[in-house]
Design a protein around this nucleic acid. Structure first.
Lengths: 190, 190
DNA sequence: GAGAAAAGTCAACAAATGTTGACAAAAGGA
DNA sequence: TCCTTTTGTCAACATTTGTTGACTTTTCTC
């Protein structure tokens, strides 16, 4: 058969459907509250297929949780606006409708799922810390990274996971200004 | 029988044992991952007793989650150090070994448990917001409360729930100074 | 000590969980 | 068309879950 443009092989399509459904449900309800049958139903396939394609619930979760923060290159960041830049980037990471959305998945489950917690820790250690290394004395980089994490994950938690009304109500510009200033101070050790 | 000093009625004692075990396990593993049989084992009693004393797992959780932040009186806070004061208070709330410890329970489960999330929201609305009302224009109180919540819960999340190493490594004085300054700025609208 | 009330034990239930294997349908290549 | 591989369906499994009811043991009062 001549190649159907834009249509992948059927197996790829169901695999993608499962992954998309899993991402959405894991992000919405967390690891424990999301059953394989729920995922299968959302993807309109048989529960057994989920296992067939991903081996186990754990491995499916791991696959969905395996993603990249995609932080801008260290060199391309204006040190005077790291705070705002970082916050903007994380906001996009949460609100971006399309591709990844792995961060919501992770944070929703991290509180009661050791794997997810470890994964978050790795992400910050491998991707955020390097950025901070170039912004101040390396001796304090770890401390600065900790403070930055506490504020950024706190914002994500209260706004997207817990959905505390006062935090949800914050408009983008206020967040960029206020939280950005905090992150700026933490990041540069000011 | 003459009253045994410091010993309560037997039923009260087992009830307290269940509650203590539940508090510890809920705080450690979250709502979903803590089974009634786990709680019973930790309290060295029969699983049926848990139901007998508390009716259901939900009600037990609700009981354990029903507590008070115990914030200092608004009037007694020095407005120039609200940030530090608030942070110190929340630190004590987490690290206090004895009585309550309900906050760890709540935060550990809030990400995937609607009841816990709602409860946190209520706590902040009913107990933190009033404090902020006296520290700036009432029109911005909600916004200031949101920012304060994002930082304080973020600290709690990363330090006590996720246990991110760089945040765990922070010493008390650094937290009081750095995070205190942020909360101060958020709270007063500076 | 007899009898009542409280506290505790035990086995079982129905439902939901992740996972598996046997089988049927469809697709693709020869 | 025949045959092989892929893809999907179905029923069942073992385990764990919260919860219940019948029963025995303890505790306390008279």
């Amino acid at each position: 058969m001549v190649d159907k443009p834009l249509k992948m092989k059927k197996s790829e399509r169901t695999r993608a459907a499962i992954e998309a459904a899993a991402r959405r449900l894991f992000a919405e309800h967390g690891y424990e509250r999301t059953g394989i049958r729920d995922i299968a139903a959302a993807a309109a396939i048989d529960p057994a297929m989920v296992i067939r394609y991903f081996g186990s619930k754990d491995r499916l979760f791991a696959e969905v949780a395996d993603f990249d923060l995609g932080l801008p290159d260290v060199a391309s960041i204006d040190p005077a606006h790291v705070g705002r830049t970082l916050v903007a980037h994380f906001l996009a990471l949460w609100e971006g409708d399309s591709a990844n959305g792995g961060l919501p998945v992770l944070l929703r489950s991290a509180a009661s799922n050791e794997f997810a917690a470890t994964r978050i820790q790795q992400l910050f250690a491998a991707q955020v810390l390097p950025v901070l290394l170039s912004l101040g004395p390396s001796a304090t980089a770890s401390q600065r990274a900790g403070l930055v994490a506490s504020q950024i994950l706190g914002l994500a938690l209260t706004r997207y996971v817990l959905a505390l009304p006062p935090v949800v109500a914050l408009d983008r510009e206020t967040i960029l200004a206020e939280v950005g200033a905090t992150v700026q101070r933490y990041a540069t050790g000011g």
